[in-house]
């Protein structure tokens, strides 16, 4: 039952990516609108694919790596679409969709070649239950998605700024959003990430308190999450100062996201006891 929705998602995202690229090249408003509509349809199909998979495995999507990756891709798409509507800027879609596709594709490949260890209808490993825990995970992944988006926007800023500075304007520079808009979009994205990671982390502490058994508070993931939060808060402040506004702040944003990736990979897989896939 999951398969048709996965196929629909991939098709919708692929078509949307093609249209976003075409919009980037041609600037035709109708093409841009169609790209947005297809992305929305992809989001709906992606949601249904996540839902069906969760029903099939009798567990939450973030229970395993493939589910977490797919959920990350979905939340990245949601965040981007909200940002697109808020800032009325479509050109970023061509740069975000390949990342969403990469996450979705990886999740599908992992699912295909290394399916969940539990038999259908049987949960693999018990995870804390309840709305608070679900919100903790969802908000945390949403924060990472928002940070990923700010990283894409910062990389776009750095590339465009460089081209403008060295006066080498290719075909694409004329199509990209203005530098100040990219900066504003990145700020909005980081703000979303900061709010959601703060609330998500707080809910994580609440969820862990509710567990019957004694929990350790010295999970390296906690420290790295707090570090990520602090660094993004610093970015948020510095990006408004005279010395940092512009390219320097964008570089800091990219650096911060490198730490997020570190937290998502090395820390989750090798150091953390409670945060394997999120």
């Amino acid at each position: 039952m999951t398969q048709p929705f996965v196929i629909l998602t991939v098709l919708a995202y692929l078509a949307s990516m093609g249209l976003y690229l075409s919009f980037l090249y041609s600037g035709k408003e109708l093409t841009g609108r169609l790209a947005t509509v297809l992305m929305f349809l992809g989001l709906v199909a992606h949601y249904l694919a996540l839902l069906m998979r969760a029903k099939g495995t009798h567990t939450v999507p973030y229970h395993d790596l493939q589910g977490s990756m797919s959920l990350f891709g979905w939340l990245l798409a949601v965040t981007y679409l909200c940002l697109e509507i808020y800032h009325r800027q479509r050109t970023v879609g061509a740069f975000v969709l390949p990342i969403i596709m990469a996450f979705l594709g990886s999740a599908y490949l992992i699912d295909h070649y290394a399916p969940p260890s539990a038999a259908p209808g049987q949960a693999v490993q018990s995870l804390p239950h309840g709305v608070v825990f679900a919100l903790h995970v969802t908000l945390s992944i949403l924060a990472y998605a928002a940070f990923a988006l700010s990283c894409v926007l910062s990389l776009m800023y750095l590339a465009e700024e460089r081209f403008l500075k060295i006066r080498r304007l290719g075909e694409v520079v004329w199509r990209l959003p203005p530098l100040e808009l990219l900066e504003r979009m990145s700020h909005t994205s980081v703000l979303v990430g900061l709010v959601t990671i703060t609330v998500g982390t707080a809910l994580g502490y609440v969820a862990i308190h509710r567990l019957p058994q004694q929990q350790t508070y010295y999970d390296p993931k906690y420290l790295v999450t707090v570090l990520v939060l602090v660094l993004y808060a610093i970015y948020f402040q510095l990006a408004r100062t005279a010395a940092w506004r512009g390219a320097r702040a964008s570089k800091l944003c990219v650096f911060n996201f490198a730490l997020v990736i570190l937290s998502f990979t090395v820390v989750n897989l090798y150091l953390s006891q409670h945060h394997r896939y999120f």
């Binding site: 403008l164 990209l176 203005p178 100040e180």
Partner: peptide, 26 residues
């Protein structure tokens, strides 16, 4: 004008400069 790029690119020095300024400030 809608289907080709004939009218999209600035053709004078002054308008090219303005388009560049818009790349920075919107």
């Amino acid at each position: 004008r809608a289907e080709t790029e004939l009218g999209t690119r600035p053709m004078g020095v002054a308008s090219a400069g303005m388009k560049l300024a818009e790349r920075i400030f919107g």
